[in-house]
């Protein structure tokens, strides 16, 4: 009888894997074509609400004291919804699972400072970029001492923290292949590791390293004066929907030429006016 139980379990498992493995070719074409027939744009307009996926990255998106989301991406999303004439609904999602969540239809668009990468582009479509962000490195004074080049960090004795699923993870792999890398789910956890002095450096998009180094001058510093990458940031949507993508591309162009995007970028990334809203 016990034998029966285990066989039943195993049969079920192998069935699951077998069916999922084999059952793909014929139905796929149908589902693709049906997705094209109704544009996501149409679905959003009918629903009257656009669902936006993002995760907290200071100052792209974060919670203010009242529990509302604020930040650059939140402004962008609000403007986008207003221009589309629909309500907005924010769906905060762990960054490491944000693309699977988009693919499984948990929201209509990712507006979360997502950098374009070829790997991601295999799974989702990107609009034209609406901003550029650079990677920077911020290091612990105690452990990293006076290292000032990337090469100083590229050895097996160095540990680097990055956030799981961010382009920082990829950049670290490319620029610092020899360093030991630790991955955390949350931005706060990576920062805490650095401040606790358990890791040599943190790699993240600016302005986080910049603001951190300013806030904790006694503990951490910026080894490099310049960002070492420049990444295009854009909206990510599901594949196979040209109408939607066209609308988004042109939205970026229009708001770029009117200066709206640059203005807001300036406000969130280089001013301190919003600091009082969060603490």
């Amino acid at each position: 009888m016990k034998f029966l139980r285990i066989t039943a379990l195993l049969t079920f498992l192998s069935l699951l894997i077998f069916t999922l493995g084999c059952n793909q070719a014929p139905t796929r074409a149908d589902s693709k074509s049906s997705a094209i027939q109704v544009s996501q744009l149409e679905t959003i307009l009918q629903r009257g609400t656009i669902k936006v996926g993002f995760d907290t990255f200071k100052p792209w998106a974060m919670k203010d004291k009242d529990g509302n989301y604020i930040g650059f991406e939140i402004d962008v999303a609000n403007k986008l919804a207003k221009d589309m004439g629909v309500q907005i609904e924010f769906v905060p999602t762990k960054w490491s699972g944000i693309i699977p969540a988009l693919l499984t239809g948990k929201f209509d668009i990712i507006i979360g400072g997502m950098g374009i990468t070829p790997q991601r582009n295999l799974k989702v479509n990107f609009s034209v970029p609406y901003e550029f962000s650079g990677m920077s490195i911020v290091a612990s004074r105690e452990l990293a001492g006076n290292r000032t080049t990337l090469a100083d960090f590229n050895n097996p004795e160095t540990t680097i923290v990055v956030r799981l699923g961010t382009t920082a993870a990829e950049v670290t792999k490319n620029f610092l292949p020899k360093a030991k890398t630790l991955f955390f789910d949350e931005e706060s956890q990576t920062i805490q590791e650095l401040l606790n002095g358990r890791t040599h450096a943190l790699v993240a998009s600016n302005p986080l390293p910049l603001t951190l180094a300013k806030e904790y001058q006694d503990k951490i510093y910026l080894p490099l004066k310049e960002d070492f990458t420049k990444e295009p940031i854009s909206f990510a949507v599901r594949k196979g929907d040209l109408d939607y993508l066209n609308w988004l591309n042109n939205w970026v162009l229009v708001n770029m030429s009117s200066g709206w995007l640059q203005n807001h970028y300036q406000y969130w990334f280089f001013s301190n006016e919003w600091k009082s809203m969060i603490q």
Partner: peptide, 22 residues
């Protein structure tokens, strides 16, 4: 909290993100 439901653990992580007071 790993699937982003705004319960206590998730909120705590959000607050830490903005305040760094872990």
């Amino acid at each position: 909290s790993v699937i982003s439901i705004e319960e206590l653990t998730f909120q705590a992580q959000q607050v830490i993100t903005t305040t760094y007071r872990s």
